[in-house]
Write a protein that binds this DNA or RNA. Structure first.
Lengths: 185, 185
DNA sequence: GTCTATAGAAGGATAGAC
DNA sequence: GTCTATCCTTCTATAGAC
């Protein structure tokens, strides 16, 4: 990654940079100054395009990250409608992305979600909304809401363990469990 | 919770307050000033007892949180050695704790682990060490390292979903999957 | 719309009196 | 060992020139 100053409008460069930094460093760990530096934008542009400041920026980034991730998983599912095989493919794809990005790019919203869960109610609601949409989408595929939530939990937890241990082993282990569980009658 | 100024030595009051704040707000989201206020300790005590500052404090807190959580899970296991039943009990206990603490107290190190995974290599190593010990302990009980990692991933992910959605539903759903998986031959 | 400068608060860390 | 005062940096946010 590493979005250039090329062609993209300022507003979008800011959004991309914020998404990348929040994903890797979290909400409180990322400063607006770091964001504008990465986006190669002047500081004032943040408040011009996002009058609500850091929180409004986070709101948009969480929504966008949610949509992106959902599209990614849907693409895998459309290519392989069998529940067990597609779940396996999602976890293997996640493992490959982790490896390819030096264990930096995992769930786009997990770090922020944990940070804001008890400290920022408006943003907590946004993360809850995204998780609910993912659960719904998976639920539609699996035909079972409980299983969808369990599979999603396995994926999120595996991201934590994989990033901390810098190993794809937990992702593959969780994928076996989740695929197995999703594929049972 | 909310540790008083009672009896406990300054150093331990600081450790308790830090553990609570890191668990709920994360590493970057918690300031040393907030810690000493909560611990009812003078600011200088932090650097007297922890010359390495915030990072040394985090190192100790992560280790302590790891040991605490491991003891908790071990206690459940000793009371109910059957793998399937004990895993179910762990997830149900986690659900109860979440509910009782208004979804504030979940995994003692998850938020910090995600925050430091790509930003603070010394602390990442500490979180990796704790996760490895948990995996080992579970592995000994289940007799299978892969399953232990999958179960742990399900628990960690369920903590994220439950805190974000303020619902124990994901924890129970993940618990069913994990118990089921652990109990199979 | 773009960009600079700065305010005002909070961050981590240190010095040194007691 | 306890505690206060302070340094310097960084943070979010705003004002206002261009």
């Amino acid at each position: 990654m590493g979005m250039d100053a090329t062609s993209l409008p300022t507003r979008q460069r800011i959004l991309y940079a914020t998404a990348e930094l929040f994903r890797r460093q979290g909400y409180t760990g990322t400063g607006l100054k770091q964001i504008v530096a990465e986006a190669q934008a002047p500081f004032g542009s943040v408040y011009h395009h996002f009058p609500g400041g850091k929180q409004e920026l986070a709101d948009e980034v969480i929504h966008a990250g949610g949509a992106f991730f959902q599209a990614l998983v849907s693409a895998v599912y459309d290519a392989e409608p069998n529940p067990e095989a597609s779940i396996r493919a999602v976890f293997e794809g996640a493992a490959e992305t982790l490896r390819a990005t030096d264990f930096q790019d995992a769930c786009p919203i997990a770090t922020v979600a944990l940070e804001v869960a008890s400290t920022n109610e408006p943003l907590r609601l946004v993360t809850a909304e995204v998780f609910e949409r993912w659960t719904q989408a998976l639920s539609d595929r699996l035909g079972d809401r409980d299983r969808a939530q369990a599979v999603l939990a396995a994926l999120e937890g595996a991201f934590i363990l994989a990033r901390a241990q810098r190993s794809i082993e937990p992702m593959l282990a969780a994928g076996r469990m989740a695929a197995d569980y999703a594929g049972r009658s």
